[in-house]
Structure formats: C-alpha cells, structure tokens
C-alpha cells in the first residue's frame, strides 16, 4: 500500500505542475465524454423536428450535394412556453421537492446529529442501520408503503381497530403519499452528508459555548447550525434536486392529479414519441435549475477560499 503510494507520489512529483493538470484532466475528460457529449446530443434533438424514423427526429444539418442547410427549430421551446401545462408541472415539482427536502432535513438533522455524537461502536452501528434498508430494492420499499397506506392497509386497519376512526382515510394516490415516498427514499441522502459534516464538529467549541453560559438552544443556533451549514446545503441539494425529476414514486404512490415534470417528460417520450419536445422539456428544466445551483456551489467554494 505504502509502496504503491510512494510510486504514485514520485511519478506525480516528477511531473511537477502537470500532476495538477492530470488531477483536473481525469474527471474532466470522463465528464466530457459521458456527460457533456450526450447532453449536447439531447440539446441537438431539442432543436430538431419530430418524424417517424429511426431515430425519430430529423437531422439538423442537411446536405443536398451542393450546400448544407442548418434546420434549427425553436418551435419545441415555443410550445412549452405556450401551454401552461408545462409551467404548472415545473412549479408543482419544485414545490413537492422543496417540501420533501425540508421534511427530510427536519427528520434527518436530529438523526445525523445523534449518530455523529454517539460513541463508537454505536456510531458505526447506527450509520449502517440508516443505509441498510436501502440495500433492498427501492421498488420493494415503495410497494411496502403501498401496503401501509392503502385503505385496507396496516395503518387504516390499526386505526379502525383502535376505534380512532370509523372509515378508512384515503392516503394512497394522494400527494401525502408522494411526500412520504420521497422523504423515505431520499432520507439517507440527507443524513449521510450531514453525518460526514457533524462527526468532525469540534467538541471544544460546544463546550466553550456551554462554559460561557450558552443554553443548549443558543449553542445549537449560534454554533452548531452555522458550522454544519455546508452539510445542510449538501444534504438539501441531494434531496431537493433529484426529487424534482422523480418519476417512479409519484407514479406508484401519487394520484392521477399528481402531475410532476418527470411524468410530463415520460408522456412526451413514450405517449407522443416526440423526442424533440421531450428533450426541450429536459433542457429547459436543466437551465432553470443548474444556474442557481452552480451559483450556490461557487459561493460555497469562494467562501472557502476567503477563509
């Protein structure tokens, strides 16, 4: 292990500055090939016209033997703008994702804090226990929730037999079920970054605060919370962002009124077989979301450089 390390070190060391370039290049090239190029393909499709062929869109560049014509078609984007359906679906998705991420934070933060403050080996045990359910298939867990939430399911049956309610509460096929499903599925995405952050929280700072007479609540708001901000941002991002495009959970737990952007995209692709409009939906969403998120991440990095 140390031998290998020394070899890498000296090899990189000999390269000097270019070692730095190499460290940048490896992930950069990977992402260029497997993310940027496919992404550009999608961008290209979003500007082309739908047709019945394989693949199902017209080429952008046409060559008639003498000259090339470039057919850029912005109608797909105009279409999104003109039908309120798409905007509404975006807004609804963002709302669902935001509520879910907030709920996940409210549940996840105390859990992560408790786990991070626990002594070993309990800490490792609890951390593994957070992940363990997620090594069974996601679909199984969502179906298990169906079993809980249905009108003759576990929750309703329990409540009825306890005499708390007379008629079953309709929970499945509602937005409530979608929130449950998303919070459940993404909870570890919240807990893990929070844990990684909180576990290194300097005890002496907390003690200092306590020594200076800070009440636990004050210590939490003035010391713990600001220090764990990077973890909170990371966790929130890991829940909020993927939840926006979520397709399977609303499909299995939500009602017919639950129209999230993932479903709209699916419709465009598979019901309409309109790859160009589907690509336009995805690109529009990416632009709307990536810009603020990138700003957030640069802010995080810049704040770090100033320290």
């Amino acid at each position: 292990m140390t031998g290998a390390r020394r070899v890498t070190e000296s090899a990189l060391g000999r390269l000097g500055l270019s070692g730095r370039a190499l460290v940048v290049a490896v992930p950069l090239v990977w992402l260029l090939v497997f993310f940027l190029i496919p992404f550009l393909v999608v961008a290209k499709i979003s500007l082309s016209e739908v047709t019945i062929a394989r693949p199902p869109y017209l080429p952008l560049l046409e060559w008639d033997g003498l000259r090339a014509t470039l057919n850029l078609n912005f109608e797909n984007y105009a279409y999104l703008w003109n039908d309120p359906l798409y905007g509404n679906a975006y807004l609804f998705s963002v709302r669902v994702a935001f509520v879910s991420a907030t709920l996940a934070l409210l549940i996840g933060f105390p859990m992560a804090y408790y786990i991070a403050r626990s002594p070993e080996p309990r800490r490792t045990l609890l951390l593994t226990a957070v992940i363990l359910p997620f090594w069974t298939s996601f679909l199984l867990r969502v179906y298990a929730w169906q079993g809980f939430l249905r009108s003759n399911g576990v929750i309703n049956n329990t409540l009825i037999s306890l005499g708390i309610i007379d008629t079953p509460i309709v929970m499945l096929q509602t937005d409530f079920a979608v929130y449950i499903g998303i919070v459940y599925t993404y909870l570890p995405f919240m807990i893990l970054p929070l844990y990684a952050n909180l576990v290194k929280l300097d005890d002496s700072l907390l003690e200092a605060s306590a020594d200076l007479g800070g009440r636990p609540v004050a210590t939490f708001f003035y010391v713990t919370l600001p220090l764990s901000m990077p973890g909170i941002i990371a966790g929130f991002m890991l829940v909020f962002v993927p939840a926006i495009g979520e397709f399977v959970i609303p499909e299995l737990l939500g009602g017919p009124n639950t129209l999230m952007i993932g479903r709209v995209l699916w419709n465009e692709f598979f019901a309409n077989r309109d790859w160009p409009v589907a690509s336009a939906v995805a690109i529009a969403m990416l632009v709307v979301l990536v810009v603020p998120i990138m700003a957030l991440r640069s802010a995080q990095a810049r704040a770090e450089e100033k320290r």
Binding site: D83, P84, P256
Partner: peptide
Amino acid sequence: RDARAERTLTRLWTRVRTGQ
C-alpha cells in the same frame, strides 16, 4: 397516428387525468 394527432390525443388525456 401522426405526431400531431398523437399529441392531441395525449393532451386531451392529460386533461382528463389531471383536470389541466
């Protein structure tokens, strides 16, 4: 159906499904 007719159908269906 051609792409346009398919889209009309799906759009109407979305209206039925979601009321939108």
